[in-house]
Amino acid sequence: MMKLSDIVKAIDGEVLCCEDQLDMEVRFGFSSDLMSDVLTLRDDDILLITGLANIQSIRTAELSDINAIVLVRNKVATDQMIDMAADAGIVLITTKYSMFKTSGLLYAAGLSPIY
């Protein structure tokens, strides 16, 4: 398990929403821009790493019980995304790193893959 605050440090991230929940822990990382893939996951305690910066990534996370999202490559989160994340209690983090580098750093730091 890895604390979200440690994840933010590892990827030089910026927290856009729900900073009060950075003590929360996640076990798995899943990197995808394909929300269809995210919806097939059965596990809990997942961090979603994605380049898909639209409300659908937030909606998909909410409906899949995913409580934390990292937006890679400096993708800009709209106000609507941040509001929706706040309503759903989803921690939203951005990083300037690519999906590959973000995933690599977090894998090395101990986040587990699902498959």
Binding site: D33, L34, M35, S36, D37, V38, T40, N54, Q56, S57
Partner: peptide, 9 residues
């Protein structure tokens, strides 16, 4: 473009 439509629904 919204991240769906992969034929998995």
């Amino acid at each position: 473009e919204m991240g769906y439509g992969a034929g998995m629904g």
